[in-house]
Nucleic acid binder design. Structure first.
Length: 796
DNA sequence: ATACCTCGAGTTCG
DNA sequence: CTCGAGGTAT
């Protein structure tokens, strides 16, 4: 049992050690010598060993914890970790104001949209490390996670604890919850010292500080991480509770520093474009003298209210940008030019390069994108080329060194046949990419389709990567994605046996057998776990051309079930936001292929269940009116060329569905002010053997949706009102605003007419606002809209 | 009809 | 990360 003296001494030692860390890492002013620090730490360890109950959660002796058993747990970030848009200099440009065009555009957008002629930015070096999030509860570090895909990362708490720059307890008054975002990096001095020592001991060296930092955090054994010279700088906040948020980013960073979190000493504030460029020039000048590697600088709009006004696009904020330094360039030789076949059959030429070090890693491959790119650069086998890592990551061939070209070289030409299946390679008129015409007959495309299906952002089958898929397809175990759900443990073991036999490696020891069983069980379990994906993930996973994550999400939300999408006519699909004629056609033709339907039916038969809302969204029903029907049919090629947009609007205002339109007859349309030509075109389309039935079928679906959709909001404050949104909103997207308004009973229209009840004008509103003023339609600004929405909460 | 802007698709290396 | 192209707003 601990006595009072021991307890007091332990508390004192904790304070001393934590304070020493703070002074060293945050204030950059060490107060005690290293040897003294070590002595204090050892004394604390000794006390805690004797009296384990004295080992508090924030004790610095926790810095080396237990080994993780296999993988890191997933952690959902309470607030997503953002990625930044990039700006590069136009190196060709001599005039400075044009050289920084992208940064100038960034500043101009901010000036335009905030109305602040000289906005203030918080500016900082962009460290070349690994972004992480630290969660403090009641001031104690409880969890640390990598960025991952932005919404979910990996729990690397044990490894982060070993980093002395990361406080285990915050100083001063602790908020209930504080998530701190920052960069774990390896200081250059530490990197060199580490490699020096590794070299002396004959151990593996680190390729570069960046990989050193990333690799260190992924160590399963924290004791290994503890040996790595890692450091940390905080640069932002995630979720927080009980934390009084200052008005600006720079004040927040100062507050974090007061709480004991290290912040880069090179963080400053700058005003306007000139301030940004000046800061960047100064950092560039001292780049080599910095203690850490950087790949650029980051500009963040300092005032949080202005940040909110700018909002986001997809995952990136519009109020911050990374201004990167030009990438390092190296010379090497092209040994060969191969082609790869992608998921969609796209034929991509790849340069096989003589290995060369570029910005810290050895590059051997570089994509050449397409035949145009090769022609533009005139790259040939045997050429000496200049290579760089674009954004310091992806290798890219910049140019050919003409003087070094061997005399016998010949221009590269696109192969006429697919290297994987021999089918013809076709390149449609006007398109840049050439494609293998083999479709799913082509093994390369089949493999890519499987890899895509299993990938993390799609169905997410852990352990089913490229290697695995290769074997499964080559050895005939899997033809389509549906076959995955039929695989048994025995199948996988058999696969493994045959693959080993093929590769000539047959370590038939008992241990290897166990490992194989374990591996097969894991894969089966991963497949099992993937049986109930969300509808949007399933849609994305199917690999329909043009359907990425966002479009899949929009489709899932609009239709609510896979079957509804399979049945949907392109006219209906066009009612989905972001779906136009091309995308709608792509979806329709995918579901028109018997083979695809067989695979989907097999998937369902094999127990795959998409988790759908089951309810088509209200917004789909509201978008679908007679006007949409006519407009969409016209876009898709119905004989309605004579039907102008104003006529469509007139018709849609008066007639609710086709039955009403037909009852009115051509005369009824001309009475609405529609030209005789246009009215005739409408009825001609209805009489058309192809378009007539289609229009009627879609009309029927439309009416069914109307009655089923929950959009007939009883007593909604906006029932019977038509609202038009224009310009850009800051607090939400137009999409969201539209959905909120619809939930209140409004009909959201695309253009302003006399019938429009309200026009909501965001920033930079254009002609619609002018028209609204002209027609005397009431105009709301964003504040008015937000106030209204706040006053009329909808359950959502 | 035109200008932006966002999304999709393909890709590297450890 | 970059490029091309589809979609939407003007």
């Amino acid at each position: 049992m601990a006595d009072a003296a021991q307890s007091a001494r332990a508390a004192e030692l904790r304070a001393l050690v934590n304070d020493a860390n703070y002074r060293y890492h945050v204030l950059d002013a060490p107060a005690i010598p290293d040897a003294e620090y070590d002595r204090l730490l050892r004394e604390l360890e000794a006390i805690e060993l004797a009296c384990p109950e004295l080992r508090t959660e924030d004790s610095p002796t926790w810095r080396v914890g237990a080994r993780a058993d296999s993988a890191f747990a997933e952690v959902a970030h309470a607030l997503p970790m953002l990625s930044l848009g990039n700006a590069f200099d136009d190196v060709e440009q001599q005039q400075p104001e044009l050289r920084h065009r992208e940064v100038a555009d960034f500043v101009r957008r901010i000036v335009d949209e905030t109305g602040d002629p000289s906005p203030v930015f918080s500016v900082e070096p962009k460290l070349d490390g690994l972004a992480i999030s630290l969660r403090y509860e009641q001031g104690v570090l409880v969890q640390g996670a990598t960025r991952g895909d932005g919404s979910t990362g990996e729990d690397v708490t044990a490894n982060l604890r070993t980093i002395h720059a990361i406080p285990l307890r915050l100083r001063g008054e602790a908020p209930a919850v504080l998530e701190v975002r920052g960069e774990v990096y390896m200081p250059r001095a530490g990197f060199h010292a580490f490699n020096q020592r590794a070299l002396e001991r004959g151990e593996k060296t680190l390729a570069n500080p960046r990989n050193g930092a990333a690799g260190s955090l992924r160590q399963l054994d924290p004791a290994v991480t503890a040996q790595r010279p890692l450091a940390f700088y905080a640069y932002g906040l995630g979720a927080h509770e009980g934390f009084e948020l200052p008005a600006t980013h720079s004040q927040t960073l100062r507050q974090l520093a007061r709480m004991g979190l290290p912040v880069s000493p090179d963080v400053e504030t700058a005003r306007g474009l000139e301030g940004l460029i000046d800061y960047r020039r100064r950092i560039d000048a001292k780049r080599d003298a910095l203690a850490y590697d950087i790949d650029g600088v980051v500009y963040k709009l300092d005032r949080f209210d202005q940040q909110r006004a700018m909002g986001f696009v997809a995952r990136a904020p519009r109020w911050a940008i990374a201004h990167k330094f030009p990438a390092q360039e190296e010379m090497t030789e092209v040994e060969a030019i191969d082609v790869q076949v992608g998921r969609t059959g796209a034929i991509t030429p790849v340069a096989r390069l003589k290995p060369v070090q570029v910005a810290g890693v050895v590059v051997t491959n570089a994509t050449l994108h397409n035949a145009d790119q090769i022609a533009r650069l005139d790259v040939r086998v045997g050429d000496t080329v200049i290579v760089r890592r674009a954004g310091d990551v992806i290798p890219e061939v910049l140019a050919v060194v003409a003087e070094r070209r061997p005399p016998d070289s010949v221009p590269w030409t696109l192969p006429g046949a697919c290297p994987a299946c021999g089918s013809a390679v076709v390149r449609p008129e006007g398109e840049v990419v050439a494609r293998c015409s083999g479709g799913l007959f082509c093994p390369a495309q089949r493999k890519q389709a499987l890899i895509h299906f299993a990938s993390r952002r799609a169905i997410d089958i852990e352990g089913l990567g490229e290697r695995m898929v290769e074997d499964l397809v080559d050895l005939g175990f899997v033809q389509s994605v549906a076959d995955l759900y039929r695989l048994s443990l025995d199948d996988l073991l058999e696969l493994k046996r045959r693959a080993d036999a093929r590769d000539g490696s047959t370590p038939e020891t008992a241990k290897a057998g166990k490992v194989a069983t374990r591996w097969a069980e894991n894969l089966i379990e991963a497949i099992e776990r993937s049986r109930s994906p969300s509808l949007e993930r399933l849609l994305f996973a199917l690999g329909i051309l043009q359907i990425g994550e966002e479009t899949a999400k929009a489709l899932a939300r609009s239709f609510g079930s896979l079957q509804a999408i399979r049945d949907a006519d392109p006219i209906l699909l066009l009612a989905v936001p972001d779906v136009g004629p091309k995308v709608a056609g792509s979806i329709a033709s995918f579901f028109a292929q018997p083979h695809n339907n067989e695979v989907i039916d097999a998937l369902l038969a094999n127990g795959l269940v998409a988790q759908a809302t089951g309810q088509p969204s209200a917004s789909l029903a509201t978008r679908l009116d007679l006007g949409h029907l006519l407009r969409a049919a016209k876009q898709l090629g119905a004989p309605l060329v004579r039907l102008g947009d104003t006529s469509v609007v007139r018709i849609a205002e008066v007639r609710r569905d086709l039955a009403a339109l037909e009852a009115a007859g051509e005369g009824g349309l001309t009475a609405l002010g529609v030209s005789a030509d246009a009215a005739a075109a409408v009825f001609a389309s209805l009489a058309d053997p192809y378009w007539g039935p289609r229009l009627r079928a879609v009309d029927a679906v439309m009416m069914a949706l109307r009655s089923a959709a929950p959009h007939e909001v009883q007593g909604g404050p906006l029932v019977g009102k038509t609202v038009v949104l224009t310009g850009s909103l800051s607090a939400m997207t137009r999409e969201e605003a539209g959905a909120r308004l619809e939930a209140l009973g409004a009909k959201v229209a695309g253009s302003v007419s006399r019938k429009t009840s309200i026009v909501v004008a965001g920033e930079a509103a254009g002609s619609k606002l002018a028209k609204a003023t002209e027609l005397g339609v009431p105009v709301w600004d964003e504040a008015r809209l937000l106030a209204f929405l706040a006053a009329h909460p909808t359950g959502a």
